[in-house]
Amino acid sequence: MMSNLFSVFDPSTSLMNLSLNWISTMLGLMIIPMGFWLIPSRHFMLWNMLLINLHKEFKTLLGNKNINKGSSFIFISLFSIIMFNNFLGLFPYIFTSTSHLIMTLTLALPLWISFMLFGWINNTQHMFAHLVPQGTPPVLMPFMVCIETISNMIRPGTLAVRLAANMIAGHLLLTLLGNTGPSLSYSLLTLLIMTQIALLVLESAVAIIQSYVFAVLSTLYSSEVN
C-alpha cells in the first residue's frame, strides 16, 4: 500500500541494499531488437531518417557561425536518451528516471555550465552585450541586466523542472485513475480502461515532445553564446 501518492516514484527496488532502479536508464539498449543493427533494417532506416531530420534542424538552430562541427550530434544523443527513458517509464514496474530532478538536473546543469564557460571565456564582449537587449532605454539598463542575469541563471532549473514535472503529472493521473478501478462497476470500468488507453497515448506523445523540447532549448542556449 502506498504511504502517499508520490511514493509511486520512490526508488524501492534493491539487491543487497544496492538500488537497482537507475539501471532502468540502460534498459533501452537491451530492448532494441538485434535486427535493428542489420542494414537495411526497417527499424534502422526509420531511426536513421529521424536522426537526419534532427541533425538538419539542430544544425539550422546552431547557425553557420558554430565552430564546433558535429556538435548537433550531442543534442541528438540527448534527445535519444531522454526519449528512451520517458518511454520506458510508461511500462509497468519500470522506474521512471526522468521524473526525478537528480536525473534531469544531471543533464541540464553540465550543459548550461559548459555553455556559460565557453561564452564568457571566448566571447566575453558578446555575453556582456547580451545582458542588455537592443533598444533598451538607458534608465532601464541596470534593471535589464538584473532581469537577464536571473533569467539566465534559472535556465538549467527550468529545463530540469519542465521535464520532471511533465513526467510526474502524467504518471500521477494514470495512478489516480487506476486506483479507482476496483471500486467501479463493469460499465464504468470499461470507460476507465478506454480513458487510461487514451492517457497512455497522450503520455507517449508527451514523452517525445518533452525530449524534443529539452534538446531544442539546449541547442538554442548553445547558439546564444557563439
Results as ranks from 00 to 15, higher is better:
F214G: 00
P110Y: 05
I67K: 12
W22Q: 11
L101F: 13
L140Q: 03
M103R: 01
S71N: 10
N4G: 14
F95H: 05
T98W: 00
L107V: 04
I113K: 06
L18P: 02
F75G: 00
L54T: 01
M141W: 04
V132Y: 00
L140K: 00
V132L: 04
N152K: 09
R42P: 09
F44N: 08
P33A: 04
V225P: 01
A207T: 03
M167R: 05
V161D: 01
L50C: 09
G181F: 14
M2Q: 15
L29N: 10
N86T: 04
I150H: 00
L18N: 14
L51Q: 09
I113A: 12
S151G: 12
M16L: 14
N17Y: 12
S77E: 09
M194F: 11
L159P: 00
L61F: 08
H55T: 08
W120F: 13
M194S: 11
M1F: 13
S7R: 08
H100W: 13
G35E: 10
H126T: 11
T190E: 13
V8M: 14
S211F: 01
M103C: 09
K65R: 15
I67M: 09
Q134V: 10
L54C: 05
L61T: 05
S185N: 15
T136V: 03
T136L: 01
A160M: 05
Q196T: 11
F95P: 00
L107H: 02
I197A: 09
S151M: 10
T175R: 08
N53S: 12
P137V: 04
F79N: 02
S97H: 02
S183E: 15
L159T: 00
G135C: 08
L140V: 02
T195V: 12
I102D: 14
F87D: 02
Y93V: 10
I94K: 04
S211C: 05
P182F: 04
F36L: 10
T180Y: 06
L62C: 09
L217Q: 12
S71V: 07
L159F: 06
N4K: 14
L200A: 14
V8R: 05
L54D: 01
L105P: 03
L177P: 01
L131T: 02
I102P: 04
M141A: 10
P156K: 02
N85C: 15
N152L: 07
T98V: 10
G181S: 14
I209N: 12
V8D: 02
L51E: 13
P92Q: 07
S7L: 05
S41V: 02
K65V: 07
I94E: 02
S114R: 12
I32N: 10
L200R: 14
L177R: 04
P138T: 06
T13P: 02
I31A: 09
F91L: 15
S211G: 11
G119E: 02
L189Q: 07
L176M: 13
T96R: 03
V139C: 05
S3V: 14
N68R: 12
T158P: 02
G181M: 15
T149W: 03
